[in-house]
């Protein structure tokens, strides 16, 4: 506990929900599904910002950071990366029964793990995953837990047992003040995630790492995975890109104006 945290009387117990995504989004044009095989997994970019935020808060106020992730076997590496960034422990939710989960079944499973872990003042997650981008998980977790949620966070300060959050809206910023417990989803680029050192990587492997199956969470198969998911994905299609060359004519000013107009639209 730092001197600062003693003064404030805060010891933040923080959970960070993270997701591993494929480094490159490729779609199988025959089966209309995402290709994951042979593509390297990385931490979802804004989840990395959430980890950075959690570790910064812990360093300032004291406390403990727990990473939680659900996914296939190879996600272990992503969690260890997060531990190397400074988190204290990791929970890896892995079971064949969880495969094919939609956002609701995923949030439900994550919330079951969060409840099993105990009480958190702060739950952080990224705004959205770069592969599916639904932005559902954060709000769904908050809803299941019945706690306040603040989305699109670009800045955050903890003062007098309250959290002041700067939100990024379409055309403006909004600052809100909320009480614990709260779920906050963060925007990519809100901070600069640290790069762990060589020593941090190997120290991370010594930290507490829990693997939880469907039985460990006390769940039934019809509550999770594909069978527990009301959403059925019929097709995934990549956005169509068309290459088109257009030569702009006129004076320099006219060309610049035309170009600006094209970029705007």
């Amino acid at each position: 506990m730092t001197q600062h945290s003693i003064n404030l009387g805060i010891m933040l117990n923080i959970a960070v929900c993270i997701k591993e995504i494929p480094e490159e989004i490729r779609v199988n044009k025959k089966t209309y599904t995402l290709i994951r095989e042979g593509i390297k997994g990385v931490i979802n970019p804004c989840d990395k910002n959430a980890i950075e935020l959690s570790v910064t808060l812990k360093e300032k106020h004291g406390g403990k950071v727990t990473l939680i992730s659900m996914g296939p076997q190879n996600v272990e590496k992503t969690l260890i990366h997060g531990l190397a960034m400074g988190a204290d422990q990791a929970v890896f939710i892995c079971d064949k029964a969880f495969a094919g989960a939609d956002t609701l079944a995923t949030a439900f499973t994550l919330v079951t793990a969060i409840k099993k872990l105990g009480h958190f003042q702060l739950i952080l997650c990224g705004k959205a995953s770069a592969d599916s981008g639904t932005q559902h998980i954060g709000p769904q977790i908050a809803n299941f837990l019945g706690i306040t949620q603040v989305t699109y966070a670009v800045g955050l300060a903890v003062e007098n047992n309250k959290v002041r959050v700067k939100r990024q809206l379409m055309d403006e910023y909004e600052t809100v003040e909320v009480e614990f417990p709260v779920l906050i989803s963060v925007v990519k680029g809100m901070n600069e995630p640290r790069i762990p050192s060589y020593v941090d990587i190997y120290e991370a492997s010594k930290k507490d790492f829990f693997r939880w199956s469907i039985n460990d969470l006390g769940l039934k198969e019809d509550q999770v995975g594909l069978t527990g998911s009301p959403t059925k994905i019929s097709k995934i299609l990549p956005p169509e890109t068309i290459r088109q060359c257009k030569m702009l004519q006129g004076t320099l000013e006219e060309i610049c104006n035309d170009l600006a107009q094209i970029l705007k639209t």
């Binding site: 990385v42 272990e76 590496k77 260890i80 990366h81 190397a84 790069i195 762990p196 060589y198 990587i201 190997y202 991370a204 492997s205």
Partner: peptide
């Protein structure tokens, strides 16, 4: 896993 992370952080 550590070596995979090492590669990732070096890339970063």
């Amino acid at each position: 896993n550590e070596q995979e992370i090492l590669k990732d952080i070096l890339r970063e």
